[in-house]
């Protein structure tokens, strides 16, 4: 094999550098946008009672009256050191790392469960739909995908929460001590990814099925089942490899809507709270984390794709597809 590990590592490294650049741009963008927010966002309820002089003094203390480039470089330096600032409203004077830290296990826990369920259901569903294309399983599967994607999540989730809880006799809101209350949020979160995986899988398999090499494989006397497993399935996983990591990572960071709907103390719910209460520093930190995860997901997708698809040219810029 000419494509040794070395080439892959080299490719990964250059991709990594590019991701860093993206990250830097995202960080700066988030930073500048947050500067446009009203300055109340740095004070709790006391803002109304403070005089203009006090406000100015406090803003200067926080470094918000420094020239923008100084602010940006301080912000970057602090971020690199792992200091994301201090929450000013949601939990006043508590370092953001400590605000977010305890939320992570909830989001990751729910996220991983969701992913496991979605992969276990979505991939086989997509395979079934591709194999029975145009017949009943395909129509039912497509109906499900269209339903999930077309009906607004808000409607779908509230419906599930209301009727699901009374039908299954489970609590409407999440509580750590009652495992039964974990069911509905997981179902809600798994709905979307399952539909996505099924749709992707079906689509990529059907794409492969229509290709000429499948005709050749059949013409050489291969059983349909063998053609499916040895050619179609394997090749359909290549485009999947690019999409999966981002999808998985984004699920793990928590669903903004589901977490706030079921009162799960995770990161997604926190973002909603932070925005509602205009806690500028907290919003900034959370948006940064979410974008980081997104970038890492895309990065992993590219690397995975390079590993499974020999056609990607690793040495030069601009792949073959």
């Amino acid at each position: 094999m000419e494509r040794g590990c070395f080439v892959i590592v080299k490719y990964a490294f250059s991709r990594f550098l590019r991701s860093l650049v993206t990250l830097l741009i995202v960080t700066a963008a988030v930073f500048f946008m947050l500067r446009l927010m009203p300055e109340e966002g740095y004070f709790a309820e006391s803002y109304d009672k403070m005089t203009r002089g006090q406000i100015e003094a406090e803003l200067t203390r926080m470094g918000l009256r420094d020239p923008l480039h100084v602010q940006l470089s301080n912000y970057l330096k602090n971020t690199l050191r792992g200091d994301l600032g201090t929450s000013n409203i949601v939990r006043r004077y508590v370092p953001i790392v400590q605000v977010i830290g305890p939320k992570i296990p909830y989001s990751v826990g729910f996220g991983l469960t969701t992913i496991a369920i979605s992969l276990a259901l979505g991939i086989p569903l997509g395979m079934l739909m591709a194999r029975r294309k145009g017949r009943l399983p395909d129509s039912l599967g497509s109906a499900y995908v269209v339903f999930v994607r077309a009906v607004p999540a808000a409607v779908c989730f509230i419906f599930l929460q209301l009727y699901g809880s009374s039908f299954l006799k489970v609590p409407m809101l999440f509580s750590l001590s009652r495992p039964l209350s974990w069911i509905l949020p997981t179902v809600c979160m798994a709905l979307g990814p399952t539909a996505n995986y099924a749709m992707w899988m079906r689509r990529y398999m059907v794409d492969e099925l229509n290709k000429d090499y499948i005709k050749l494989a059949r013409a050489k006397g291969m059983k349909n089942s063998a053609v499916m497993s040895r050619h179609v399935l394997r090749n359909a996983f290549v485009p999947m490899a690019q999409l999966l990591p981002a999808s998985i990572l984004l699920t793990i960071t928590g669903s903004i809507y589901v977490e706030s709907l079921f009162s799960i103390p995770g990161m997604g719910g926190l973002l909603v709270t932070a925005i509602q209460r205009q806690d500028n520093t907290l919003v900034q930190a959370l948006v940064l984390i979410f974008s980081c995860v997104g970038i890492v997901g895309l990065f992993l997708g590219d690397i995975l794709m390079a590993i499974v698809d020999p056609r990607i040219k690793l040495e030069k810029k601009g792949g073959s597809r």
Binding site: K211, D212, Y213, K215, L216, R234, N235, R311
Partner: peptide, 17 residues
């Protein structure tokens, strides 16, 4: 086994992976 076939377009007749 008895009859085999060669197709028109060699660019797409082989599994790329």
């Amino acid at each position: 086994k008895e009859i085999a076939m060669v197709f028109q377009d060699p660019m797409t007749s082989l599994n790329p992976l």
